[in-house]
Design a protein around this nucleic acid. Sequence first.
DNA 1: GTAACGTACAACCATATGGTTGTAGTTCAG
DNA 2: CTGAACTACAACCATATGGTTGTACGTTAC
Lengths: 105, 105
Amino acid sequence: MDRLFQALADATRRDIVSRVLVAEYSVSGLAEQYAMSFAAVQKHVAVLERASLVTKEKRGREQIVRGRVDAVQRARRLLDEYEHIWRQRIDRIGDLLAEDASDQD
Amino acid sequence: MDRLFQALADATRRDIVSRVLVAEYSVSGLAEQYAMSFAAVQKHVAVLERASLVTKEKRGREQIVRGRVDAVQRARRLLDEYEHIWRQRIDRIGDLLAEDASDQD
DNA sequence: GTAACGTACAACCATATGGTTGTAGTTCAG
DNA sequence: CTGAACTACAACCATATGGTTGTACGTTAC
């Protein structure tokens, strides 16, 4: 999870993710999109790969990068959990208020 | 967004978030929960605050920390978007296959 | 075969991060 | 008033991060 959120904590990497979820890109194809060196983009892709957010597959002399929606879903599920436990607290507070109301009967 | 995901990229901070979404904690109350110095926890809370994941409210000599579900939702919505654009690609591929099928008619 | 392309990786730099200890200011209790 | 509790913040350290340039290697095209 650390690596997953860490990988998402950079605008360039988030942009790469959104691109490779739509279509395939070679590493150099991605590098063309950004105003930084090829090596820098290569590092970003490596971070995304370690976080399981993308896969790389060799095709000829190119390395094809694809997005992995399952990793996105893993992160989303954790945030869903947070919303859930928050909602439970709200519900609990609602219950307490209901109890107070019945006390006053 | 950078700060949001950066804040979530640490297990201690995620644990703090899950706690303060359930109940209120003072900073020292949180610090008791972890095997690190008070100052370290204080820094984590500061990171979460800059990311809008928690709020601090002074109450007497204590500082009460509360979780902000809206920030969690902002992060979740971005991940939802990613899933959405991925699904669109899948749909597009489905459409292409359907076209191929009709070509063969 | 050779030149160009795509990639990998190391070395380097500046800055950020996660932790520590120490000092100091407020607030509460006795 | 004095001491203890809660917090803030600075200084410091080790390591990680995001960027660069340079070098080396496999692959493709001519």
